[in-house]
Amino acid sequence: MIVSRRQFIRTGVAGSLLLAFSGWLNAAGERRLSSDERAMLAAIAAALLDGALPPAGDERSRLVALTVDGIARTIAGLSVASQREIGELFGLLVLAPGRMVLAGVGKPWREAGVGDVSAFLESWRTSRLALLQGAYAALHDLTFGAWYARPDTWEAIAYPGPPRGYF
């Protein structure tokens, strides 16, 4: 993503304000993922896992939903500090201004296509803002971790799973 210095500063300031706001929204602590957060994560997982997921259809939706469940489980096992930071990130992304200004995704998450979401992920992946790069890395690790933790994803990569028997 090539950004001018002016854009860079504007995004940084807007991002800090949004983060502060979403941090306040999420100060309450542990909670389940909201349906807005699930929709956002489903859109992101569908883009990250494009190539590993089957083409559009019920099976794809089912596997994306399982991945979102896995992400929720992973988050519940993280430290309080990590959970708070992820809560701030999610709180930011589900807000329309956050989605549009920082992620550059115009459509609501439920309607956003793989192309829209991939463009946003790509811009964060190589962003000059460490905050966005770190956020991308968190989404990347949560999603791929949740996906490849499931034994039904192993056949595609020819991994036989751990040895069994004699135990």
């Binding site: 990250l48 690790d141 791929f144 490849y148 595609a156």
Partner: peptide
Amino acid sequence: HPVLYATTLQGFGAAHAALMR
């Protein structure tokens, strides 16, 4: 192992899936 490798590996989408295969 799948989680350790997949989360460490760069990129996403088709490129990541191709490396994982």
